[in-house]
Amino acid sequence: MTHDAVRLDSVTRAYGHVTALDTVSLAFPAGTFTAVMGPSGSGKSTLLQCAAGLDRPTSGSVTVGGTELTGLGERRLTLLRRERVGFVFQAFNLLPSLTAEQNVALPLRLAGRRVPADRVRQALRQVGLADRARHRPAQMSGGQQQRVALARALITRPDVLFGDEPTGALDTRTGREVLGLLRGMVDREGQTVVMVTHDPVAAAHADRVVFLVDGRVSGELTGAGADTIATRMTRLEAVPC
């Protein structure tokens, strides 16, 4: 039976008088690919940060890999993020002085864990960069750098991989290659992926698309194409505040 890799129950996140998330309840089943979309300011990034343990909800609970995050201290929360959560950003966030293999190994080194060379090479092979292991970021294209970032996020074999506009800085062809990699990891390896995007074509790679408006869930689509997703987004953006 499929279990939930991540679960949010009545999560609210307020910053002073501004409510970024308003009693959001969502489940992300293991081995699925979910895209999160919504108008600007709808709470997409806040949702991702709360689900990944990067931000604490004002109320409600978040569970990752069967562990409820609310009661965890900072040290245990940091350990959980290192071991169970992968994160890929629009900015690749690679260290320019390190090679691809050194960037990929970094999460294990920061956790004080042994770094098996074959595991690092396997992670780079997984994203099609086995021949770029000793290249530094400046020697690679944007798409190759994002692939390194993806390998780095996967090196700990996380329960869930979060992507915050992971193809936003890439050209169309390269972006689709990265999305194809994500799709393949879900289909072949059972990886769970949750991705924020503004692009209906990117969202169409997901199994389902969850829509947020004003910090609340405003429906979802399953198995939808880019045109259907774009039409739904157009309607949401046309709704007056």
Rank of each mutant, 00 (worst) to 15 (best):
S141C: 03
G65W: 08
L124T: 09
M37F: 06
Q126I: 03
V210I: 14
A138F: 14
G86V: 05
L108G: 05
L72S: 08
V62R: 09
D207Q: 11
A105R: 01
G184S: 09
T34R: 12
A130G: 06
A230R: 05
A203C: 11
V209N: 00
F162H: 03
R157Q: 13
H198A: 00
R84L: 06
Q126F: 02
S10F: 10
L47V: 11
V88E: 01
F211P: 08
T231G: 07
R121I: 12
I155N: 08
P116L: 09
L47C: 10
T174V: 01
E237M: 13
R235K: 09
E83N: 09
G65Q: 06
R147K: 15
R176G: 01
D187E: 13
Q144C: 01
V194A: 08
D187N: 07
Q122V: 15
R119I: 08
Q191E: 05
G225L: 11
G112F: 15
H3V: 12
V104C: 05
E101S: 10
H198E: 01
A169P: 00
D131C: 07
R121Y: 10
R152E: 11
S10P: 06
F211D: 10
R157F: 09
E83I: 04
T156I: 04
R152P: 07
L95H: 00
D187P: 03
L110K: 10
G60C: 11
V85R: 08
P158G: 08
V36R: 01
S45Q: 02
L54C: 03
G223N: 15
F92M: 01
P200S: 04
R173V: 06
S40R: 08
V88S: 02
G128C: 13
A230V: 01
G180K: 04
Q102R: 15
L48P: 02
N93I: 00
G71R: 13
E74P: 07
N103S: 02
G180C: 05
I229N: 03
V62Y: 15
D199W: 00
H17Y: 02
G168V: 00
F87W: 00
D159R: 12
R132N: 05
H198T: 00
V120M: 03
F211K: 14
A100S: 14
P200D: 03
Q146S: 03
L129R: 06
A203W: 03
G71E: 10
V186P: 10
G190E: 08
E177Y: 03
T231E: 11
V209I: 04
D227Q: 13
S40T: 12
F162V: 01
A14V: 12
R76V: 15
E101F: 11
G184H: 13
I229H: 04
T172F: 02
T156R: 14
A100D: 09
V239L: 10
V104N: 06
T167F: 01
S59K: 14
M37Y: 06
G142E: 07
R147D: 08
R188W: 13
V160F: 09
E177M: 05
G175P: 01
L236P: 04
L98F: 12
P158S: 09
V186D: 10
L161R: 00
F92C: 02
Y15W: 09
A20W: 14
G31E: 05
T228Y: 04
V24S: 03
